[in-house]
């Protein structure tokens, strides 16, 4: 599904503060199942996720995506090389292929729960009624139907987390990327979160999580755990 070969990400190149956050990483992630990136703080997990998720471009190396059919002509025969695409195309792939769950949830305050969930789909121009219906189905799946009309500010931490998951799912992505998703949750909510994600992985989605929370990487559903240190992969099981 996703293949990385010799991918590096270097910040502040040419400056005294030059820093290599991801160093020559080669990795293959298959479709379906949960993959967890673990490692100490600063080891490059977030950076690696943002490279895979088309949020930033690698300094060197190639990232191939298979099984995506971009809405523009592309030359690659075995998968799409996203490491050299212009920003517009990257955004296009990102919003159709990836759903993101952030550590801080990154929800927009002051507007409704439903509107937050539909937000990633707005630029795609889907008819409002259809989009709304899909958002409500997602709310029901995440047991949030009670909050369809609520303002975001009234929700508890666990509910916010589930809104964030629903938002990540609105464009029906093949890959879900979550960065430290349990950092703000207690252990009961963390377990519940992993359960939701294993359900999603079971339905064929690829789930990628960066975390140093044992509840995440020791979870039975975490099919694969990759350890990182100083931007390199030190162990993969």
């Amino acid at each position: 599904m996703i293949t990385l070969s010799d991918v590096s990400k270097c910040f502040n190149r040419g400056l005294p503060s030059q820093f290599t956050a991801v160093d020559q990483v080669s990795l293959r992630i298959d479709a379906g199942g949960i993959t967890v990136l673990k490692g100490p703080s600063g080891s490059g997990k977030t950076t690696l996720l943002s490279l895979i998720g088309c949020m930033a471009r690698p300094t060197s190396g190639r990232i191939l995506l298979e099984g995506v059919s971009p809405p523009f002509p592309c030359p690659g025969e075995n998968g799409l090389d996203i490491s050299s695409l212009p920003e517009r195309f990257l955004t296009e792939i990102r919003r159709r292929t990836f759903g993101f769950i952030f550590q801080q949830f990154n929800l927009i305050k002051g507007i409704g729960v439903l509107e937050n969930i539909m937000l990633p789909a707005y630029p795609l121009g889907e008819p409002h009624a259809k989009l709304r219906a899909r958002a409500i189905v997602l709310l029901e799946r995440l047991r949030l139907e009670r909050h369809a009309g609520s303002r975001l500010d009234w929700l508890s931490g666990g509910e916010l987390q589930r809104v964030a998951i629903a938002r990540a799912l609105i464009n029906d992505p093949a890959v879900i990327i979550a960065d430290e998703p349990t950092a703000h949750l207690d252990s009961r909510l963390s377990l519940e979160f992993m359960e939701i994600l294993s359900g999603l992985a079971g339905s064929g989605r690829t789930v990628l999580i960066a975390s140093h929370d044992p509840i995440v990487y020791d979870a039975p559903s975490a099919a694969r755990v990759i350890e990182m240190r100083d931007g390199r992969i030190t162990a993969a099981q």
């Binding site: 305050k109 509107e115 539909m118 937000l119 789909a121 707005y122 630029p123 121009g125």
Partner: peptide, 23 residues
Amino acid sequence: MQPSLERHAHLIDFAISSLLRRK
């Protein structure tokens, strides 16, 4: 409606609720 028009409709919707947010 065409997708591009729908896109504008969504954006106008969101623009208005954004404005109301900072009433």
